[in-house]
């Protein structure tokens, strides 16, 4: 199969997967227990107004009609209006997604950079004290829930020492600035330190352990001995030859991790008051705000599936042995 045929085939699979996702998301929310109007409308509102709102949102229509309308809206690029706030879902995603992306991408970048480097080191130096220390640190980071580490960090550096701000990405009463402008302020990065450290510490373990494991497979290969026979330095062999060949599983993991970054991290966003999409997603699910939850899930899932596709396509670039 040529690379082009493979790409076309994978793209068709991508479209079918997205349709399956849309359908699953739609059905998933409808089978959840609970009347959405219990959350949309205050229990203090009278029964007549409640019935009118149910009709306004089309919740009294047959399920297949609601499904067809949902498909039609998605195809038109219109994700509908929030039950909770009556705001367009697209606006809500555009409002909250960038803050999550900045936080998650910075944390993922740091976590994967450090994780890959130390994973290579640990695999290359199997059995050394350094390897044991690195693996222990990775397992520790992975074992502590990020929200717990976050609360401890907040208490220590925010409340007790007072070195770092405790909530949000700007000072209380500091005014409103576009995120892109805010990112060029010291204030923003001070607010970023704790959540980024907490997330990086948590995420770092995964690529580190994968990389270490892959390195262990590679270091015994004959071409490594050949490199040594050629007189290459240990560092050059480790990073240019061994690490590059051991990278494939980490590429898959990192592509999916970037996809997951779109979903934010609800617990860390909640603990640090970070105005991200993860928090909104959970709130929308708890409120049975179908349009918002469906919209966020859809974007989130589509990006994960898309990043998986990208990872498949770039395999060949990293490893010429991969054929299609």
């Amino acid at each position: 199969m040529s690379k082009l045929s493979y790409t076309v085939k994978r793209f068709i699979q991508f479209v079918v997967t997205i349709w399956a996702l849309i359908t699953t998301i739609f059905i998933g929310f409808r089978v959840m227990p609970g009347d959405p109007t219990a959350y949309i409308v205050s229990p203090y509102l009278d029964a007549d107004a409640r019935q009118q709102i149910i009709a306004n949102y089309g919740l009294n229509e047959p399920l297949y009609v609601q499904y067809l309308k949902f498909i039609e809206s998605v195809l038109n690029g219109n994700l509908g209006y929030s039950f909770h706030s009556n705001q367009p879902v697209a606006d809500i995603i555009v409002t909250y997604l960038p803050a999550s992306l900045v936080l998650m991408l910075v944390a993922t970048l740091i976590a994967y950079s450090i994780g890959i480097i130390f994973g290579v080191y640990a695999g290359w130096n199997r059995g050394s004290a350094g390897e044991k220390g690195v693996v222990l640190t990775a397992l520790t980071g992975r074992s502590f829930p990020a929200f717990w580490t976050g609360i401890v960090g907040l208490w220590m550096f925010g409340s007790y020492l007072g070195w770092l701000p405790m909530t949000g990405m700007s000072n209380i009463g500091g005014g409103k600035e576009p995120l892109i402008q805010l990112m060029f302020t010291v204030e923003f990065w001070r607010h970023m330190i704790l959540p980024v450290l907490v997330l990086s510490f948590y995420y770092m373990g995964y690529p580190l352990l994968i990389m270490r494991s892959s390195m262990l497979d590679v270091v015994g290969e004959e071409y490594i001995n050949l490199c040594r026979a050629k007189g290459l330095s240990e560092r050059a062999i480790m990073f240019r030859h061994a690490a590059r060949n051991a990278m494939l599983p980490t590429i898959t993991a990192s592509a999916i991790a970037i996809g997951f970054a779109v979903g934010g991290n609800v617990l860390v966003e909640t603990v640090f008051g970070w105005p991200g999409i993860g928090r909104e997603l959970v709130n929308s699910v708890l409120r049975r705000d179908y349009p918002v939850a469906q919209g966020i899930f859809l974007v989130f899932s589509a990006v994960v599936v898309f990043m998986n596709l990208v990872a498949d396509l770039v395999y060949g670039w990293f490893d010429p042995r991969v054929t299609y």
């Binding site: 925010g158 409340s159 949000g168 008051g273």
Partner: peptide
């Protein structure tokens, strides 16, 4: 000012 702070313990500390 109404600040959005989901974490109750943070509200208390502030």
């Amino acid at each position: 000012i109404t600040r959005i702070i989901p974490e109750a313990s943070t509200q208390i500390e502030l």
